[in-house]
Each structure stands twice: as C-alpha cells, then as structure tokens.
Design a binder for these strands. Structure first.
Length: 331
DNA sequence: AACCAGGAAGTTC
DNA sequence: GAACTTCCTGGTT
C-alpha cells in the first residue's frame, strides 16, 4: 500500500492538505469494494501511516487500516499494474530493507553499490509516481465526465462546486455538507484556507480541503502531461460536454468498478447484463449529473424502461430485480 | 416496501 | 422532436 504513498511524494509536497487526508482522524470512511463484506472501513492509526513497509514486503495484510482518499479503491484485481509493481526486480536487495517514503534524501554514502541501489529505487519510485498520477488523472477525468464539470476547480461556478460536493458526499458516504458551501465559486473555494474549511465543517473540513487539493494537484499534473494523455485532453476539449444519455452514464459507472461497483456492477459483462446494487445511490448520482435534485429510482427506472422500445436496454431473459441488459454491448 | 410495466403529459434542449 | 422527467395506475416480489 505504501507504494502509493511513496509514489505520491511529489503530489504531496505540492499539496499541504494531502497530508491531512492521510493523517487526519475522522470517522471511518467506506471504500468501495465489489463485495460489501470485504470493503474496508478505514480509520487511521498512527502505526498505519508510519512508512515502515518495504516495497518487497507488500501484501494484502498491509492494506488494512490505511485511508486512501483518492487511490483508495484501487485493487490488485482491477489494477494489474499493481501486481507488476510488486514484481519489479530490485537489484539484490538485502533482507528487510525498508523504503523511506519521505522525498529522496541526498545519498550520504559513496558506496557504488548503494548508489546503484538508490538510483534503481528512485527509478522505481518515479515509475510508481507516474502511474499513480495517471490513476489520479483518470479518476478526476471520470468524475468530470460524470458531473459535467471542468477539471480545474478554478473554473467552477457555484453550481459546479455544489455538484462536486454532492458527488464527494456520495463517493465517501459523508453526511450532507454541501449546504455550508453555498454561494461559493471554485475560485472562492480555492482561495480558502484549511482553517476556513474547518470553520464551515469542523469534522470534514480538513478532508475536503485535502480532496480539493488533490484535484488542484491533479490538474497541475494533468497540465504538465496532457499532451501525451488522450483521456485528459478529451476532458479539456469536450468541456462543456454534450448532454449525457442515461445509458452512457450507466455505462460510465460500470466502467469504473473500483469507484462504483458498490452501487452498480456487471453480472455478465459479455452479455451486457448489469445489476443496480444501490438504486437510491445510482438515482442520486444521476440526479446530480442532470441537476435534478428530486431524481429517484422510480423516475430513473422509468427512463430505463423508455429504452425498451428503443432497443437500447432490456430486461434479460433470466431476469431479476434491478437487473438490466444492454441490447448491443460494445466494450 | 420496493420493484416493475407502461400510459400520459410536461420540460428542456 | 428527442430524451428524458414527473406523475400515475396497477401488478409483482
């Protein structure tokens, strides 16, 4: 797990609030997992955040008790590169070697072996950093598309800020906090200090501040690398995007299982059969996207049923409650 | 109670 | 006019 933290050094250094995402103590936040029984209810303990884990010692047991605000839902199953990273051949590492997660310090010894080691380590960390930033950008990209907001918080209107807050509430199962940020544009939000955030919501101010900071940092990172990143430039070029169709919205949620599998997931991806696991949640997300605060599953399901005669979605042959099927699945 | 089906009318683009 | 949204009646799980 500390792979992520090591790789995020650059982001973290640029983002003072990020440390609070890692270190602050707030009530447990649930992290999306396909199986609710295996989801991690994360609360931070001091021992969990000490960087004592070697890259080579990472295993699933190290995952528990770690709060990963934005990278939290990355699982080995859904992110094969994580597995690859654990297989990165380190140059003859001594047993129990540990990796400090602080920014690389100047090499003190001139021993050529440890110098080579430290160079390899740096390269490894650099690779991880690149991949983590990529994941951050992808997640922000998805949220931007689903919410129809700009990636840069500085561009947000009051409504965009409210959307982002509502989304964050739902993503992390927070209580309703958006009302204490009414009448604020993204620029207002960005000019607020962490203390300002805490003043508005003492319990979640630091977390929100850090979450916003990740968006800002991600945006900076995206600006640096967007020339080589098609998905990022898509967001920039397409904003403001065309009105999204409900079937596209559902498909986009399904394409991000590490974020949304707790509310919607594939039963049979090849056949396009999916199940809405949390009908109220999906309806709420759709309502946020469409600026329809009164949206509920009754209405959303009526919209889905409109697709029956259009041949876009149908009920599968072996049907069930909350189970639907894309007629022409193209993945 | 929650979900399902579909008619009818309204809204937004 | 398309694509929903809202409201509704009535049926099923």
């Amino acid at each position: 797990m500390f792979l992520f933290f090591s790789g995020l050094n650059t982001l973290r250094m640029e983002s003072p609030g990020y440390e609070h995402m890692l270190y602050s103590t707030h009530p447990p936040l649930y992290i999306s997992q396909p199986n609710p029984d295996t989801r991690m209810a994360c609360s931070l303990k001091e021992e969990d955040i000490k960087p004592t884990c070697s890259l080579l010692e990472i295993n699933e047991h190290n995952w528990s008790g770690v709060y990963m605000p934005y990278y939290d839902r990355l699982t080995i199953e859904e992110n094969p590169w994580l597995l690859r990273m654990t297989e990165v051949p380190a140059p003859a590492p001594p047993p129990f070697r540990t990796v400090d997660l602080s920014p690389p310090a100047p090499t003190q010894t001139q021993d050529p072996h440890s110098e080579m080691e430290s160079q390899a380590e740096e390269r490894c960390l650099e690779q991880v950093h690149t991949m983590v930033v990529g994941e951050v950008l992808k997640d922000i990209d998805t949220a931007c598309k689903l919410l129809n907001i700009a990636p840069d918080p500085m561009d947000w209107t009051c409504m965009h800020v409210q959307k982002w807050l509502l989304w964050t509430e739902h993503l992390y199962r927070l209580p309703q906090i958006s009302m204490v940020f009414q009448e604020l544009t993204g620029s207002n939000l960005c000019s607020m200090t962490e203390a300002d955030f805490r003043q508005r919501t003492s319990q979640f101010g630091d977390m929100l501040y850090a979450h916003l900071d990740i968006w800002r940092s991600g945006n900076k990172a995206g600006s640096k690398g967007k020339c080589d990143d098609d998905s990022w430039s898509d967001v920039v070029c397409n904003y403001p995007s065309q009105p999204i169709h409900l079937w596209q919205f559902l498909r986009d949620l399904l394409r991000k299982p590490h974020n949304y599998s707790r509310c919607i997931r594939w039963l049979n991806k090849e056949k396009g059969i999916f199940k809405i696991e949390d009908s109220a949640h999906v309806a709420r997300l759709w309502g946020i996207r469409k600026n329809r605060p009164a949206m509920n599953y009754d209405k959303l399901s009526r919209s889905i049923r409109q697709y029956y005669k259009k041949g876009i979605i149908r009920k599968p042959d072996v049907s069930g409650r909350l189970v639907y099927q894309f007629v022409h699945p193209v993945w």
